[in-house]
Amino acid sequence: MNRVRTVLGDIPPGELGVCDAHDHLFLRSAQSPGQELDDVAAARAELAAFRAAGGAAVVQWTPYGMGRRTAELAQLSRATGVRLVCATGLHQAAHYDAELLGGLRGTGLAELFVSELTDGIGTTGVRAGLIKVAGGFHALDAHARWTMTAAAEAHHATGAPIAVHLELGTGALDVLDLLCGELGVPGERVILGHLNRSPDPVVQRQAAASGCWLAFDGPSRAHHATDWRMPEAVRALAEAGFGDRLLLGGDTVVAGARSVDGGPGMPYLLRRARARLRVELGAELVERMLTEHPGRAFAVDWP
């Protein structure tokens, strides 16, 4: 039976509730020194604000080695009542130091992902519910192919969905050619993120035809110039017959983007973005994008 794997255990997809399908409570990267998401009290306040706005679940896409704070996730979920889904996987090489990557290259990366999905992360007992990987700008380098190959192996062993960071929203078709073409991952098990950052309607329709999930996440402090085009892009996909493949998220990646630190944060998704999308799509589809769709995208018949 399909279940969504949260940090507190597996639940039926219908119990996920209103879900931010792509966000971060904790995040640390060599690319953004001094901008880390690592404040537990701020994370708790952000979740409480999201809950007060009507939110019930958050999928954290922070992968291995980027400060997931897994033990804290379980405690925060209990304290706030917000269901949390944790990721395994690996981001672009630039986000890690060479020593960490060197150590991983001497091990079985797919086995690491499978272990975190099935046995748990470290000694926390928390199991990941998805695999996060990343493409490059209009291309896939050797690191992306290595991580995506391992992600596909882990998917075939567990059924876990694969969530993909598209650099500046590009490279969707290259990712699908590799994951779904060469590596045999079903399209409906792939979630493409950051599509609002490259608002190309032709590519988006071509990607949607694979059966994959299309995640529109924002508002983005770094890529705000494309945020205003998101409702139009989502409406075009719905009118083309792909309304049942859409997900929404906030993608908070630096402390200043949290609502409790003066940014839009997680509550914005429900406080402002939802109302804006209702104008384009109608309330029924928007509510399905926030509830039914995440349940389907992240639910797995776990072994």
Rank of each mutant, 00 (worst) to 15 (best):
238 A>C: 03
194 H>Y: 08
51 R>E: 02
262 G>E: 12
303 P>N: 03
37 L>Y: 11
34 G>L: 07
113 F>L: 11
171 G>L: 01
44 R>T: 11
5 R>F: 08
190 V>S: 02
4 V>A: 09
89 G>D: 09
108 G>K: 12
227 D>M: 06
152 A>V: 11
69 R>P: 01
135 G>C: 03
229 R>L: 15
158 T>W: 10
77 S>C: 04
121 I>Q: 08
255 A>F: 00
168 L>E: 13
282 G>F: 07
214 L>Q: 10
258 R>T: 08
44 R>M: 11
64 Y>C: 06
285 L>F: 08
203 V>G: 13
23 D>M: 05
57 A>G: 06
7 V>S: 03
37 L>A: 04
301 D>A: 15
175 V>S: 07
105 R>S: 01
278 R>M: 15
23 D>L: 02
113 F>N: 07
17 G>T: 09
124 T>K: 07
106 G>T: 01
207 A>G: 04
274 R>D: 05
213 W>P: 05
7 V>N: 04
282 G>T: 13
179 L>W: 03
205 R>K: 14
257 A>F: 05
65 G>F: 00
282 G>H: 09
147 T>R: 05
284 E>V: 15
265 G>C: 05
220 S>Q: 10
43 A>F: 04
203 V>I: 14
57 A>P: 02
230 M>R: 14
56 A>Y: 02
212 C>T: 09
213 W>F: 03
193 G>Q: 03
12 P>T: 05
248 L>R: 00
82 V>H: 00
287 E>K: 05
178 L>K: 12
94 A>N: 11
141 D>Y: 02
177 D>T: 14
51 R>M: 09
97 D>Q: 06
263 G>L: 10
296 R>E: 12
9 G>P: 07
254 V>E: 07
248 L>N: 01
147 T>K: 08
224 H>D: 13
206 Q>M: 14
223 H>G: 01
90 L>D: 00
49 A>R: 15
167 E>M: 03
89 G>E: 02
38 D>H: 13
300 V>R: 00
9 G>W: 05
54 G>M: 09
236 A>C: 08
95 H>G: 02
164 V>I: 15
264 P>K: 15
151 A>Y: 08
262 G>N: 10
105 R>W: 01
181 G>D: 01
27 L>D: 00
173 L>S: 01
51 R>I: 04
102 G>Q: 00
211 G>D: 00
64 Y>N: 10
220 S>A: 10
198 S>Y: 15
217 D>Y: 05
143 H>T: 02
147 T>C: 08
234 V>Q: 08
59 V>E: 08
2 N>V: 14
19 C>F: 03
144 A>T: 01
173 L>Y: 08
276 R>T: 15
134 A>K: 00
200 D>I: 06
234 V>L: 14
25 L>I: 04
244 D>W: 06
174 D>N: 13
64 Y>V: 04
111 E>C: 00
229 R>Y: 09
222 A>S: 12
48 A>M: 13
256 G>D: 07
63 P>L: 06
92 Q>I: 13
282 G>I: 12
122 G>R: 06
46 E>K: 13
295 G>W: 02
126 V>T: 11
137 F>V: 10
220 S>R: 07
38 D>I: 11
25 L>C: 07
168 L>V: 13
57 A>K: 02
266 M>K: 09
121 I>Y: 03
135 G>K: 06
252 T>R: 09
4 V>L: 05
91 H>D: 13
225 A>Y: 10
259 S>R: 14
185 V>H: 01
